[in-house]
Design a protein around this nucleic acid. Sequence first.
RNA 1: GCGCCCGUAGCUCAACUGGAUAGAGCAUCAGCCUUCUAAGCUGAGGGUUAUAGGUUCGAGUCCUAUCGGGCGCGCCA
Length: 578
Amino acid sequence: MKMEEKIKRLIIDALAKSHGIKEDELNEVGLELSRNSNNEHGDFSSNIALKLGSKLKGPPMTIAEEIVSSLGALVELERAEFVKPGFINFYLFGEKKYSILETILNQGSEFGSSCATEKKKVLLEFVSANPTGPLHVGHGRHAAFGDSLARLLRKAGHEVFTEYYLNDAGRQIDILCISVMFEMLRAEGLKLNDIAGLYKGTYIKEIAQGLIDESFKINKKVLLPEASASADELIDALILEMKDVAGSKLFQKISDKAVLQMTELLKDDLSDFRVNQDGYYSEKSLFSKGKIEEACEIIKKNGNAYEKDGALWLESSKYGDDKDRVVIREDGRSTYFASDIAYHHDKKMRGFDLLINVLGSDHHGYVSRLEAGLVSTGNKASDLDVILMQFVTLYRGKKKIQMSTRSGNFVPMRDLYSEVGVDAARFFYVSRSHDQHLDFDLDLATKQNNNNPVYYIQYANARIKSVLKENKKRGYVFDECLGKTNLMKLDLAIEKEIISLLGKYPETILKSSEARAVNKIANYLKSLAQLFHSYYGSTKIVSEDEEIRNARIILLICVSTIIEDGLDILGVSSPTKM
RNA sequence: GCGCCCGUAGCUCAACUGGAUAGAGCAUCAGCCUUCUAAGCUGAGGGUUAUAGGUUCGAGUCCUAUCGGGCGCGCCA
């Protein structure tokens, strides 16, 4: 039994004895026991007396006193005491605390793993940006967060499959296609005015040039539509015109090529950022495999769809959405929502218990629709966990950089991580909570990269490696056995603090994975690094006393193990030298 | 107008999901390298947690209103 469980048992028995409270009654109130990293309140503490105050109609201090006097004994427990408002603090015998170091030493990077009580099969979808341009700094946040969350959930013991949903069908792909065709025509000498809404940028030109090199040719007789129409109408007219001029076969070929190349570009942007998703799921394949019709049949069969104005509607308002939504348009084409219903149903059919979607916060209005889609295909709304990512605002110094994908005026994520480094960029992205806006100052990140907290943590680890080297250099051989038998000589206040914090690693993994809060790992590592630096500054590790020396080295190895493991979750490297 | 998210030190952010004296970094000031990496350490100043109520043993955290910022309300994706 874990220490927590043993102490909880002790409290339960004491309450039965002192106040005649049964276990079920206690469950209503909720028995909490927290592990303290702050040593002045003992190793564990409970607020149960405070919580019972109103129920028992007595002052919490008295209740706490009565509980403490009824407490049984435990071999590991040195003493229990009640303090000020009514907390009960538990103090363990010294030796017991040190055993955590041996555990870390034995388990290595497995320490804290598989702590989740209910292990799930998770499909984690993130980034999923349209393949119409390079990924920008906003996507970078999704990439860093999503990938780290995957690592964190795996660490906690879940089975995770990461996926990128590729929107390779629909209007935006047509626009990509005609954008490429425009550049092909230009490359062949045709003078064409810019049209608002088309994708621009060197990547479009490169794709166009590539197609020309493969001797793709377009009939030059393009009739530009009247400019008087609205931007959207103009584009629609242009798509029709281009399909007509090129012929649907060639149009399709160019479109496929463009998507393929864009996808490669996206994959490269991600992979150089140490993000490699397990799968890319094609929206187009939903059509070719008949998944959309299949989904429509299911929602009809379940009585969740109806026809109106020639369109097929999902009765999503039954399941928490503001209104019903069109699934199949009047003209027979399916909507984007139809694809999503089919896609999410398919995720469930592939056997995943939990679907996690990392979406931009601008999609929050879409969440209830997705849930309604799941329910109407016979799944549960709670199968889906949407994480809304707040925006990244980019600054150069004090100047805000406005971003827009369409106008081509955006900063690619590649530029960002080439400039500040993958380690710093990934750490910075995930060190803020996902529901918090993120201000990213490029000037600050480049100029002051020495002040970035990621270096602070990496430096702590490099220092440890250096101490271990120094130990050898002085002719000492690390004696694990001797160290282990002298762990209780680590009795400095700072050493005890470090040991307590190390002991909190598993619950940090558990809590941050449950809250999908990767930033908690970053914060934990900052605290650990801070304690270590302070320890290092005040204490000589490579001591002449071999008992203390070897015990301290064990402590350092443990700190290093946790830092490396934690940084790995964040996708950050652990250099041994800096 | 309706809905969702957010307001914490001058700036950027924490605070173990309701706990004990609200903490770091940057910036400012004062110290520390003939001890293992100074990308470091030690100390100082800086707060009515946007505002006003409420809930209870206890509120930055929960509920209500107000103010301020972001986003969303398509047979677009």
